[in-house]
Amino acid sequence: MKTLVTGAAGFVGTHLCEYLLRRGDDVHGTYLDQAEFDRLPESLQQQVVFHQCDLSNLEQIHNIVEPGGFERVYHLAAISSVHQSWQGQDLVIRVNLYGWINLMEALRQYCPKARILMVSSGEVYGVVAENRQPIDEFQPLRPINPYADSKAAQEMFCYQYIHRYQLQIVIVRPFNHTGPRQAPSFVCPDFAKQIAAIEQGKREAVISVGNLEARRDFCDVRDVVRAYYLALETCAPGIPVNVASGSAWSIQQVLDMLLRFSTVPIEIRQDPQRLRPSDVPLMLGDSTRLHRQTGWQPEIPFEETLQSVLNYWRENRYWSVKALL
């Protein structure tokens, strides 16, 4: 397959490119600036055809898509942090929504037969009562932060292009996922980076934390990109599918597990600046629909995922937050 991955230099993008290359795809990817490209693993720089592109610039997208002849498109490029979205929702809407619309306009003109993956988020469900969890795709969308708002809006625009232009857009709603290369603006690499720095004597033996009571459904990023591939190949356009493990871990449990892997004793200290203005107590996903349609289920144990995140930061691969969003 000739495949385009937007946001290919990001956390999920790098893992997806590696997965597609192993399958033998001819992979093209977009990145935003040269610093992103320079931080990529050398193997990806050599094997993926990269294009510098700002998705808010329609002309730049046309320059990539018009001669492309892409059969598969995975749209990952986004501002993907809930915390960052509170700092400027205008930017979130410009990148996440208008960038998506620009891509759809280019694809409908030049690659109308391509199968397209639109990556939404479990955040679009908002606060769901615990007695109605795990959350399936029949739950209404009630987003409560700018990031979730932008993803819900992206979904709504999909139907216009599906029904008016017959684009084959598959919608996935991933719940939390983590793994090596994730930016420290997310909770698992945040803790892991602090622990690694403490072990190496680069900071005092105190880890700063926010809300430890929230419970989240975590998948390994390597399981997630496999789900994306299977969904795009198998699932029907316009019918959202959750990508979730079906198990919820409290942030306290995540921290305790990482601390058990630590080689030194560490004190825990709560930092009020790490508390989000709107935090959902529980997000637990139901991926029954995805399993029925594709056979997908998570394969990597969460303990193994966290160990790989910590080992990544122990190896001093301190990529910038901007490069990995």
Rank of each mutant, 00 (worst) to 15 (best):
171 I>Q: 07
138 F>Q: 14
128 V>R: 03
126 G>Q: 00
191 F>T: 00
152 A>T: 12
168 Q>K: 14
140 P>K: 02
151 K>T: 13
157 F>V: 14
109 Q>L: 15
174 P>V: 04
144 I>A: 07
129 A>W: 02
117 L>Y: 05
164 R>Q: 14
136 D>Y: 09
188 C>N: 05
152 A>C: 03
183 A>R: 00
177 H>I: 03
161 Y>Q: 01
134 P>C: 06
123 E>C: 13
136 D>Q: 10
132 R>C: 08
189 P>W: 00
139 Q>K: 02
149 D>W: 14
161 Y>V: 06
191 F>M: 09
107 L>S: 08
175 F>Q: 05
167 L>N: 08
172 V>Q: 12
118 M>G: 02
125 Y>S: 05
114 A>H: 04
146 P>G: 10
112 P>V: 10
163 H>V: 08
167 L>T: 10
170 V>H: 11
118 M>A: 12
148 A>D: 08
156 M>A: 15
166 Q>W: 10
124 V>G: 04
104 M>P: 06
154 Q>A: 11
178 T>P: 01
137 E>A: 12
176 N>K: 02
181 R>D: 03
189 P>F: 01
171 I>S: 06
183 A>L: 02
151 K>G: 09
173 R>F: 03
188 C>W: 00
174 P>F: 02
100 W>M: 14
190 D>E: 07
128 V>Y: 08
135 I>V: 15
125 Y>H: 12
170 V>Q: 11
126 G>A: 04
186 F>W: 04
116 I>A: 01
120 S>F: 02
177 H>K: 00
125 Y>G: 02
167 L>A: 04
167 L>E: 09
135 I>T: 13
173 R>V: 03
127 V>G: 00
115 R>M: 00
150 S>P: 12
184 P>S: 10
173 R>K: 14
180 P>V: 01
158 C>P: 06
